[in-house]
Design a protein around this nucleic acid. Structure first.
Lengths: 98, 98
DNA sequence: ACAACATTTAGATATTTGGCTAATTATCGA
DNA sequence: TCGATAATTAGCCAAATATCTAAATGTTGT
């Protein structure tokens, strides 16, 4: 969980997560969005994997990365709760007020 | 805003924010909770100040730090929104579903 | 004025981070 | 089997980070 915040500390990695939010994408495809070399991107992916924020599926010679939304959500939730904040999926059915 | 996530990357700093959530506390008082020297804590406070997550009020020879909840909330909100997540104060009046 | 106190600043060091180039691994198509 | 392609690993470097001890700053009480 502390790893998640470490991972989120870098703007490139946050942007990667944002991109993956729309659907899985290959390493190379992701790399095109940023102005750094592929090995550098590879290192960022490794950090995100280590935080369990993304998942890799090897398909032939490409690697597809997908966002593990639940992990991100849990981490945010866990943190926010300590501050009396609530996190909900934006369009979830509004939970009935107790 | 990127500064906020940098600040949140360190567990000591996250814990400081949690402590301040219950109310303002002096630098020395905060330092007692952690197993590092006061200069080290001072550096952590500086990072949190830089991220605008806390505010310092000098009272005599002590410095009282207070959490800037709205800033934390805004940062979390801004990030979460990019993922279709919603953040609300836990006991806020339930916003009417549009 | 002085000593004690609360905190920060200065300066040093070790570790981590983010970036690069070059090399390696693995897969695909002809 | 070869050459091209996708991605990672290896090795290096500069900058940033977290920590420490020692020194400086500012404030209070006597």
């Amino acid at each position: 969980m502390g790893n998640v915040f470490k991972a989120l500390a870098d703007p490139t990695r946050r942007a990667v997560l944002q991109l993956l939010q729309k659907g899985p994408m290959s390493a190379g495809e992701l790399a095109e969005y940023f102005d750094v070399t592929k090995p550098t991107m590879s290192a960022h992916f490794a950090v995100l994997m280590n935080a369990d924020l993304i998942q890799a599926d090897k398909q032939g010679r490409t690697i597809m990365y997908r966002l593990k939304m639940s992990v991100l959500e849990e981490a945010l939730l866990g943190f926010a709760q300590g501050f009396g904040l609530q996190i909900t999926p934006a369009k979830a059915p509004t939970r009935k007020k107790s």
